[in-house]
């Protein structure tokens, strides 16, 4: 039995903000199924009482001194932006026209 359907892969692509093509969906559906069936092996391990590990370094709440240090200028920070205006990142329309009007 397949672990994941083509429709579920299409849903994952939408959640992941990937405008995948129909051909890609055909390819990914099979490949993700193989991968998910293989990684599902973790379920064979008896680990009900085992605490999870998210990180190997036991450090928490690392703060620096609250002092002003040099940082990027606005020009530097915006230097890689696809579009910028008035020292800000310029983005495509966020609200639909119906809402905006």
């Amino acid at each position: 039995m397949a672990a994941i359907s083509r429709e579920e892969v299409a849903h994952l692509a939408r959640l992941s903000r990937l405008a995948v093509t129909e051909e890609e969906l055909d390819m990914f559906a099979g490949q993700l199924d193989v991968i998910l069936q293989a990684v599902a092996q973790v379920g064979e391990v008896a680990a009900a009482d085992i605490p999870p590990t998210s990180h190997s370094v036991p450090l928490t709440n690392i703060f620096r001194e609250d002092v002003v240090t040099p940082c990027l200028t606005p020009e530097e920070a915006l230097s890689g932006a696809p579009d910028a205006e008035d020292q800000r990142f310029r983005v495509p329309r966020i609200l639909s026209e119906d809402v905006a009007s």
Partner: peptide
């Protein structure tokens, strides 16, 4: 993201989103 990422990156993003 569709144009900028290759197939392996897309696979891993989707696997992660699923998991």
């Amino acid at each position: 993201r569709e144009a900028g990422f290759g197939p392996e990156v897309k696979r891993r993003i989707m696997i992660g989103t699923y998991a």
